[in-house]
Design a protein around this nucleic acid. Structure first.
Lengths: 157, 157
DNA sequence: CCTTTTATTGAAAATGATTTCCATTAATAG
DNA sequence: CTATTAATGGAAATCATTTTCAATAAAAGG
């Protein structure tokens, strides 16, 4: 039985192999960083966190790996308005809580929220069903974000 | 009385002046292009459409104007995954229909939909109210997009 | 209408995140 | 263990967007 969180064959190895991708150190390390943080890391963020321990892993590889991961659906890519892509594990071994984002347009801070998610999901599912049929569109994913000013940035006004 | 759609002082002149911005030919022309299309134009798209008639309006000005317009809330900026910002008039003189987007990840085509918008808006308003209070966040805007494959791209699979 | 103030502009150069190139390395099949 | 070929890193290239800076032109005040 594949291990769900610790040592041994990791949960994502199967998916990787199934798609013809190889398991490499860089990929292990990158997924490991992502699975250990709640933050929304950019490619360079990941590079920095890795570099001291793995000086031989280049930034290019990080970009490439994030691309693969996003294509496999293991990682979500977001744009929070700070001119660089930011990434989040789609679903950790324990199944991360589904959430959406509040994005502060003042300081680019991002707050994850799970409130109202159930209502949102219910509506989204209905909407997706309706839209799929009407527009002959196979919906794979959705994005919901709220933009505004966080407490700090409101004070600065 | 400011004219709502034709000649004379345009609906947005007041807002512009009020914020200390000047009314210039470039801005007139750019807003005019945006108000006459249903498409989601990029800065370069606008440049192309303008250039033959106004060869003296530079791309830089278009970027700058779109920035001003977005800051004023007259225009929305979107990322549909084709590596360039795309713009849409927030609300024409006649009050454009509020809508959201279906984005095809295969060909980057975008479909505007208005279906379910009422239900969405109702939920969004409740959610916004709750989130504003809980996180002390002043919500100014939201983004909802669905990603998937359009009919054409499904066929190509 | 004319002058002054200063926002706006265009062209060229700079920026910076992301990609591409290509020779080298290493994961996997057999 | 060897052959096959995906993966890698470093340097160079891309390319949308910004910045710089001198020239232009709105708008305000006579």
């Amino acid at each position: 039985m594949p291990n769900q969180n610790g040592m041994g064959p990791l949960w994502w190895h199967g998916k990787f192999r199934g798609c013809g991708y190889r398991i490499t150190l860089a990929r292990e390390v990158i997924l490991n960083v992502l699975s250990k943080t709640e933050e929304h890391l950019s490619a360079e963020d990941i590079y920095s966190r890795i570099h001291s321990k793995h000086p031989n892993i280049g930034l290019t590889t990080i970009y490439r790996t994030l691309d693969v991961l996003a294509n496999l659906g293991l990682v979500y890519r977001f744009d929070f308005g700070d001119k660089r892509a930011r990434y989040e594990l789609a679903k950790g071994p324990k199944g991360a809580h589904h959430h959406h984002h509040l994005v502060c347009t003042g300081c680019n801070r991002v707050i994850d929220y799970t409130d109202f998610i159930d209502d949102e999901m219910r509506l989204l599912q209905e909407t997706e069903k309706g839209l799929s049929k009407k527009y002959n569109f196979r919906i794979m994913n959705h994005l919901i974000q709220f933009y505004g000013l966080c407490g700090n940035c409101q004070a600065k006004e």
